[in-house]
Nucleic acid binder design. Structure first.
Lengths: 346, 346
DNA sequence: GTGAAAGCGCTAACAC
DNA sequence: GTGTTAGCGCTTTCAC
């Protein structure tokens, strides 16, 4: 391997073509004969050629940096930092296959300065695109500010689709309905629900799914069985305490996320309520901890890695003006039945 | 504000100097008359000029990107993904104050291809510097490969200082000795230890600290009280089972990290051993979960955010060839006493 | 102290 | 389908 980095000229010479053709192959542009393409690819592999990002950026007036913008966990340090890691992992995968780099940008949506912060980021780094995670993805003030910069944007779990706004989401509503029907199928008729962070629209959809599931199962919705949480462990603890204290105690609890479900299990344990014999508990997310609980938590595996990867690929596609492709992708989630749910007590 | 970004030419024209002089001022190079400098600075301010990073990188052959390289959690998905988030947070803070951007690069050190992968990354992005997290930071094969590219490198928790290699670490050994003395002070004489991942040298230092602490407290070391773990939750569970099964059961267990400590608590709970009445358990890291355990875990708060921030700042300093400054920084950790430790049983 | 000229390695626009 | 020619906005080298 030579010491100095091979350039596009080296590849062109080795392949016996012009630099433009190399550029075409590397950038997956059309109009290259497949034999030529193969020759170039062989030369690229042989020299271990990688295009220089700075040169690319300078010439093309945009970077190959994708920004992953999400709510800053530092503010509340949830056990679900795994959530972020998984998003990053997926985004990183997408970047690898599109030859982009990933810039992470956690930011606190509660601060007034978010919008200014994001527009500065965009200007200075010339981001090729942004993947905006929930709940920022459902805040129109933020979405609009980004759109105003004309930076391509994909919203992750936006809670609601908008025409002309790209998004990737999971089927929160449908899968929560499925979970509800599963519990009803086990004989539960008093299925409670702990709602999540009201700022987070996609999480709100789970609540709709819960209602759908009740209806599908012939059960009637009762406000008595719903307690508000805020996605935090502590709110799950408190909500469960309220529910268990009700005169007609629920036999099953669905929490809008795993952190709250884990909190609920902790409360049940403290109050001597046996899970799942006296109370079934289900969550949403499948954080690492859910498998390590005793009993392991029944939950919904959100395909975060896949979602983030699709978002980056969508950005890449859209850059190629491929408007024909879907603007909204749904990556379905999967129910993971473990031991925190069981037949309703007699 | 004009539509197109001002370039160095615009500034030069406005200031009535050549672009080279503007470049000198912007880059704080010497040999510019102070009156000229002021004139240029005024023009820069007036136009709100920011040098284009890509052009700068291309011409100077290096970027303003800092790479944060760490072991890929995807391989084992630990609850300690919070560890990574905290490192990222610190590195991000450091980048903010040095006007750099952060590129994250998780990679699996077990794969043969790591070295090739890292050299590719360096070549492609022309990283201005690398912060290498443990345990990669103590693998000479990897460190050497990076050094060969002449990219400035700071090692995080390298386990051992090397002359001419920058590093930031915490006082693993000393603080573990302190923890051991604290337990001895509570009357424990059979203090067991669960060792960590042998690939991870800094974690190995904690074991040395354990021995120091025993000696300081007049206790003698016994191989019977040491069980090997690998930093994982599961290994903590198994190690604790072995220790609890010993004919002379320990009254306290120190685990080399929190994941294992949590596993140990799980085992104790299963076997009906009451923590802390019959058994004290202590960990290391202060993962989020440790506060949510029942009882909350006594542990060591590793100043990861601070460490990663210092590492980035060290990189920036070193870039300015500031060789006078310290090459090795130690950010001290802090013991967090919670309820999983208590007086030795009578 | 300051400036002119020559690239850095690529993409874009337009030939062929 | 493929190649040619200009830059992109800056740093570097070297002349003055």
């Amino acid at each position: 391997m030579s010491l100095s980095k091979p350039t596009i000229f080296d590849v062109a010479k080795l392949a016996g073509v012009s630099i433009k053709t190399v550029s075409r192959v590397v950038n997956r542009e059309p109009n290259v004969r497949s034999t030529t393409k193969e020759r170039v690819e062989k030369a690229v592999a042989e020299l271990n050629y990688r295009p220089d990002q700075s040169a690319r950026n300078l010439a093309s007036h945009r970077s190959h940096l994708i920004g992953l913008v999400y709510d800053d966990p530092a503010a509340y340090e949830l056990p679900s930092s795994g959530y972020i890691i998984r998003m990053q992992q997926g985004a990183l995968q997408g970047c690898r296959s599109t030859l982009c780099e990933l810039l992470i940008h956690p930011c606190n949506f509660r601060r007034k300065s978010v919008v200014a912060e994001l527009t500065t980021l965009i200007k200075e780094t010339r981001l090729a695109g942004i993947v905006l995670a929930a709940p920022l993805s459902n805040m129109q003030k933020i979405v609009r500010a980004i759109e105003a910069t004309k930076t391509p944007l994909v919203r992750l779990s936006p809670g609601q689709q908008q025409v002309k706004q790209l998004s990737v989401a999971t089927n929160d509503r449908e899968v929560t309905a499925e979970m509800t029907r599963y519990l009803a199928g086990l004989g539960h008729s008093r299925i409670a629900y702990i709602t999540g962070d009201p700022d987070h629209k996609a999480v709100g959809n789970r609540f709709l799914g819960y209602k759908d599931g009740l209806r599908d199962s012939g059960l009637k919705f009762s406000a008595q069985l719903v307690v508000a949480g805020d996605n935090s462990f502590g709110s799950g603890e408190r909500a469960a305490a309220k529910l268990i204290g009700r005169k007609t105690r629920p036999t099953a609890i669905i929490a809008a996320n795993d952190d709250m479900a884990v909190g609920a299990m902790r409360t049940a344990h403290r109050l001597g309520v046996e899970v799942p014999w006296q109370l079934s508990i289900a969550g949403f997310d499948d954080i690492t901890l859910s498998q390590q609980m005793d009993p392991p938590l029944t939950t919904v595996r959100q395909p975060l890695v896949r979602m983030a990867e699709r978002a980056v690929l969508m950005l890449a596609r859209n850059n190629g003006k491929d408007t024909a492709s879907t603007a909204h992708e749904i990556v379905p989630a999967e129910i993971k039945i473990r031991e925190s749910t069981g037949p309703a007590p007699a």
